[in-house]
Design a protein around this nucleic acid. Sequence first.
RNA 1: GCUCAGAUGGUGGAACUGGUAGACACGCAGGACUUAAAAUCCUGUUCCCGUUAAAGGAGUGCGGGUUCGAUUCCCGCUCUGAGUACCA
Length: 1168
Amino acid sequence: MDYQFKDIEQKWQQFWADNQTFKADNNSVKPKYYVLDMFPYPSGAGLHVGHPLGYIASDIFSRYKRLKGFNVLHPMGYDSFGLPAEQYAIQTGQHPAITTEANIATYRRQLDQLGFSFDWSREVRTSSPGYYKWTQWIFMQLFNSWYDKATDKAESIEKLAAHFDQYGSAGVDAVSDEEVLSFTADEWKAYTKEEQQAELLKYRLTYLRESTVNWCPALGTVLANDEVKDGFSERGGYPVEQKKMRQWSMRITAYAERLLQGLDTIDWPEPLKEMQRNWIGKSIGASVRFQMSAPPKPSPEGRAFNKVSPTGGDLEGAIEVFTTRVDTIFGVTFLVLAPEHELVCELTTPEQKAEVDAYIAQSKKKSELDRMADTKTVSGAFTGSYVINPVNNEKVPLYIADYVLAGYGTGAVMAVPSGDQRDYLFAKHFGLPIVPIMDIQHIETEADPTKEGRYINSDFMNGLNYKEGTAKVISFLEEKGAGKAKVNFRMRDAIFGRQRYWGEPVPVYFKDDLPYLIDEKDLPLVLPEVDKYLPTETGEPPLARASNWKYHPAPSKSPPVGETYPTHQAGNYRETADPVYYEQLKEFSRDNRNQPTEAENILWQLLRNNQTGYKIRRQHAISQFIADFVCLEKGLVIELDGHHHKLNKEADDARTEILNYFGFEVIRFDNDEVLKFPQKVFEEIKQKLTSLPERISPTQPSPLVSGRASEITAGEAKVSPAGGDLEGAGGYAYEHSTMPGWAGSSWYWYRYMDSNNDKEFASEKAIEYWKDVDLYIGGSEHATGHLLYSRFWNKFLKDMNLVVEEEPFKKLINQGMIQGRSSFVYRLTLQDENLSQSHYFLSKGQAKKWEISETFGQELLDEWKINFIIKSYEGNPQRLAFGPLHVDVNIVNNDILNIEKFRAWRPEYKDAVLILEDGSISSPTGGGREGAYICGVEVEKMSKSKFNVINPDDIIERYGADTLRMYEMFLGPLEQSKPWNTNGIEGVFKFLRKFWRLFHDEQWNFSLSDAAASKAELKSLHKIIRKVEEDVERFSFNTSVSSFMIAVNELTDLKCNKRAILQDLVVVLSSYAPHICEELWVLLGNQPGSLSYAPYPTFNPEYLIEDEFAYPISINGKTKINLNLSLSLEAAAIEAAVIGSAEVQKYLDGKTPKKVIVVKGRIVNIVL
RNA sequence: GCUCAGAUGGUGGAACUGGUAGACACGCAGGACUUAAAAUCCUGUUCCCGUUAAAGGAGUGCGGGUUCGAUUCCCGCUCUGAGUACCA
């Protein structure tokens, strides 16, 4: 039979799924190899032809490595929390979980169609509680850690607290907030618990801080720096403003140096490393303190000008600056503070106050955008104060200006106008002196930042060079206590939270306005249900809408917890400890709500709409349970028990007890009771409700912008049925923001190692075996987001001894983007009017003529008498123009428009008149002429709006997955961006048919010969065996495809149908085109499924040895002829043979060559 | 502005450490088969000059250089793409 790709591909995809062919084993004697694709977000649009590019490459690599005897881990999953599903939820009210589920289904179907060898048994989803339990767990570890600079690693926060207990804050060298307290051990112990917690929070690796964030009002959330482009949100393009908010942050800056150093140890593309280096932005310089020239007056607020510097030590009335050119300090003629600098107010003299205030007001008004666009204008204001330059005791004026950023360094600079262009402009503008400090400096028109030459005007540095000078001035400053060498990083701590619904809840609750972790056994903290996915009216995040979503720490005395309490077997209970079980329960529970039991339905009809006088909710979450019915007002839970209750009595009783602790009454009815006497049950409930005291109303949403409510007021505390005071019985407010998009993806490669483990994020054994990712393939857009955060978390986990490698991704490859290739038609329009009704379209060449020729328009009109236009253009062809319009690429073939399909494409093109490339006209009435309509072409992003999206489903339908896989590779080098053009795909398809044909006779019967292979056949085979090895190892997949074509062309010419050759060829090709090869493998008589683990054929160089070579003979470097010579000849013999040859003599023209270069086996060059 | 990557036929691209530039594929042209078309197969296809063939010349963004020999190495420039931007 001819090559029936559809049947073959379906058959093998089914086989692989049924037999779990690609399941990776965590116990193997084989060497491990971990191939990973960057975590996809399952978007609603599904895959376009560009998405699988990296997956195909990684799949080829994985399959190849299996053939080479490696135990390959090649997993796939979904980064399934994210904005699009949430935006959709806001618009439609559909729960993002449902949208996500549907999107994943589409994604999975499309991935399956491509024949990838993923181990699907390890699939993960960041949005499933079984996964995010561990994301929350890692968050807890970060919360419980601080960074000790002395050991250069993260340590337990308990260790720090113990140190405080024993020694106070002395001797702590930590990465922390700027304003930490100094205290003795006794002072520490005298602090209240709250004060201690507040202090520890300043050290934790994840912490709350008032910070300036990119707030996007339209999206109602905070964005990361890399999600903001030019003052607008990357997604959606909404304006972004700066806003102060209390936010969770991650102390990634603690790892800045390690993140930088680590880059030298990993095999990543240089541009990517460079991006990370820039992002980390290390600069080596010095901090210098400039003393105030006069003691500052006490500030109006009464705050003494006496604070601790960011680097420690008392400032005692000095301004600290950071500089990378401390050697230029003798050139300092003024100091500049950022307008936001906290000392500005105090340092401003009364005379200057008006001017400074005006400037601050003005710069505040400027948006980030304006400030960026306007880098030329010099602005600033004099504070009236002066500082003393520590090296020469000169008095230097103090200014403020918005070219100094509050967030970098110390928010203050020493200005050296001779060496820095911004300082230079500023000095010119304000008439400040410009002092040259280098003998070769040219500062007539602009600053000269040179480091060459010798110092002048620099006192003790005069005559020294840059290196000597820098060392000398630093030691001078250190001696004087006025400065020291310092390293500064541009990178800021990462904000870790969004005011959004669809993300991981932060496992934190608040007590006395301080954050505390929930108990580890209460993980996962499950995302609560909300009525709307929007912020509350008071501006709190959507999670604040979850009614009665409060944390109830386990009671301190004899809790009815333990193994028995959570082990319910029925679906009514939300069970939090076992994520796998929870998943089942969730489904069960959803079904329950959709298909309630008859009893529930009957009772609900009686309870709904305040018929009891009180509001009743059904299937409502209380803590980790879902109650059948609940009245929150009165604290009454109504449970209906089916038959399972009897089996579960013990657990249910435990549950009742806990609910009691939390101040709920529980009454139970069984189903039969409700079915038989519904009215009686109703009356009983009503009575019970009336008899119960009013429960205190739920807490008001907190007015705090930080996105959390304050905890329960004291009055809400309940007394337990057992007596005794129950602290926080009403529950503590949870954190209401959720984790950012990068949380779940910052550790996922470890989950794949052991994805079904419910005891740990991955077992020690699994991590010890798989270690790290050997090959990571993905786009470079994640350079400063995912890839940086992942390295950060990995280093932290390493510090915690939870993982074994310092770097998670040893080798990384960026696949290029596949761009769209848009097609255009050119419609005639009037230049000054929007003439959208025009039916006239010019072919590309005609449109071009119009562009170059002034009279062409007239000629065109005369020749074709376009009446409609004549009417509109009023005889003036100058008013006519043509506008390019996107046209669906699916109705264009080789740039030729399918005119019929075009007219049918949209109603407004029904009557289109097309002026074809050859000048003839195609009108709907007159029928088509000979000519073709040529479309214009442009390379753009692939997107629906540009009508240039190619869906892989369509390609697979026409040519099959094997063809698509090979074609995507054939397109060009993996790393390069390139436009998609379906035109070449025929060639690949033909190749596969040709390959298939090698195994078949004229009548398409499978037919092979067992004869011995000829020399030429073996040569072809071994050429490709070696070529594919070389190519795959260096990720040059496109060249292998070409070589496969060459091999098959050669074997076809040789009429080779020998098993000895073709069986090996099947193995070699199988990583590229797995389906067709599996089919042939079985036809060859092998066990189905064994191909994936067959040994890769061994290359034998003997088959490639030639005894003759056609030497190219060049004269003066230009090749003239080829000469066949034996390869056994040595250089001298070759030279003699070449010079002696009649053909060469012809070129020599009787002359004697000046020189003859002979490279054996390569070339002969004769120099005349 | 700075940093990085790239530029080869009509198109995608190949040439791995300096050694026959344009492999392989698309497209195009011509031919075979066919009543015809599709499909398939064969031949040609960097450009210029040349009736064909032979022979010749030019040629890897542009201008120089090193070398017997440069797409490859060096210097300067142009263009394209990406990242980043008052970072002290």
